[in-house]
Structures are given as C-alpha cells and as structure tokens.
C-alpha cells in the first residue's frame, strides 16, 4: 500500500451557540492513500460535509490533527492553507459554483489564474473537450444546462492537476441520467489523472464505486468498508 497523503488523528469539531456547546464531529481518525477513492457517507446532519471542510483545510478543527500532503494543517494559517489548496486540491460542488460572468473556458482556467499563472487556454480547451464540451468554450454558465455546468466544474477541478479531489454531493442537483454521466466522467478523469478522490454523498450506490466507504453517524466514524474496487488501488 502506498504512502498515506492524508492523516487524521482524533479530530473533533464543536460549535458554541447560545451558551451551549454542540459536538459536530468527535474523535475521528483515518488515513487516505494516494490514488485511493474514498466515499464519506451518512445521513443529513451526520457531519460528513463538516468533515470534508476540515480535511480540505476550509475550516479548523476544535481539536485533533490533520496532515495533508505531509503538511500539518494546524500549523498553517489561512493564506498557507489557501496556497496548499490552490496547488494540490481540486473541488467539485453540488451547486457547481461557476462564475456567472465568465464563460466556460475562463471558468476552467480560473485555478491557474488564481495561482498567478496565465490562462492556459490550450489545456483548458482540451479539458473541456474531454468532458464533452468541445465548441462550447465561449458559452456563459447561464447558456449551459445543469449537467453541462457540472462538466465545466469537473474540467476546472482537473485544471490544476490536483493531488486530491474533494467532491461534495456532485450529482445532488442533477437528474438521474445526467448524474450517471457525470459520475462516469468523474471516475474516469480521476483514474486517468491518478488523483485521490474524497467523495461526500448520501447515495450508497455511488459510494459503492469507491475503494473505501467511511460511514459517519452523529459525528462519529462508525463503519469503514473496503469495497471490491479497493483491489485496484491496493
């Protein structure tokens, strides 16, 4: 088994509201290896999205340690975490989150622009072609369907050649057929790029396509299932 690129130890997150402390996640430890596909599942409010925000360095835990790509996140400030995300992490969101005033190719080049590099139009064009949107480069998000917008979001996620891709309910806003297509594409691109995938979903069927499933319930990691797909990465 290859070297873990994500190590989590005794992770807890709680929030205080109106004088009461509410525990969202407690004592979670896990490891994710390179090129692994991991699904985090659980019911609504179980804490899976919170876990993802902590793993991706979007938020800080109340206690516990996260080491992402060899870097302890607790020792990085906001800016350093942003830099780490910019260089090594990709995201796919449920609501696509494309910039409405930028066209498809500009949305795809965004990660490299944010890194201070130029717009690599050739690569962006190739990525758009690989998600089946050749010829639609100049279309604005409003001129694209939901499925097409998520394809653009996928192309954007792979633009910076991330080491880890976080996907938060990537098919949550799509119809079944479109969702299926998007998932095929996501896994294919993930495989082709050798990316580690962490997928948050409540869809058990979708989770089953990953090599490992982590079930969260009431803020705790209650089950870890190694699926048949695991052999391909082990």
């Amino acid at each position: 088994m290859s070297e873990p690129i994500l190590k989590v130890k005794s992770l807890s997150k709680s929030i205080t509201a109106h004088g009461n402390t509410l525990s969202i996640l407690s004592d979670i430890s896990l490891q994710v290896c390179k090129a692994e596909t991991v699904a985090i599942i659980g019911t609504s409010g179980a804490g899976k999205s919170t876990l993802m925000t902590l793993l991706a360095g979007l938020d800080v835990p109340t206690s516990g340690e996260i080491e992402l790509l060899g870097q302890p996140l607790s020792q990085l400030d906001d800016e350093a975490r942003a830099q780490l995300r910019g260089e090594s992490i990709g995201f796919v969101f449920q609501s696509f989150l494309l910039i409405p005033s930028l066209n498809a190719i500009e949305n795809v080049t965004l990660p490299t622009v944010l890194r201070g590099e130029g717009e690599d139009q050739v690569k962006a064009k190739a990525l758009l072609a690989s998600v089946g949107l050749a010829g639609r480069e100049l279309h604005l998000p409003t001129q694209l369907s939901g499925g097409e917008q998520q394809r653009v979001a996928l192309a954007r996620a792979f633009m910076s050649e991330p080491k880890i891709l976080f996907a938060d309910e990537p098919t949550g806003n799509l119809d079944k057929k479109t969702a299926k297509n998007i998932i095929e594409l996501l896994f294919a691109m993930n495989r082709d790029n050798g990316t580690t995938l962490i997928l948050v979903t409540h869809d058990e069927q979708l989770a089953a396509r990953c090599s490992r499933i982590l079930r969260i319930d009431d803020g705790k990691l209650v089950e870890e299932i190694i699926t048949a797909k695991a052999s391909s990465v082990l």
């Binding site: 992490i89 995201f91 944010l114 890194r115």
Partner: peptide, 16 residues
C-alpha cells in the same frame, strides 16, 4: 460572498 468563498477554496490568496 459565495463567489469569494469559492475562490478562496480554489486557493485564491488575499492579495489576489
């Protein structure tokens, strides 16, 4: 606000 949050999640620095 959400655009800024998204840009930050994609790695945008404060300076940028």
């Amino acid at each position: 606000a959400q655009t800024i949050a998204m840009l930050k999640s994609l790695g945008a620095s404060r300076v940028w």
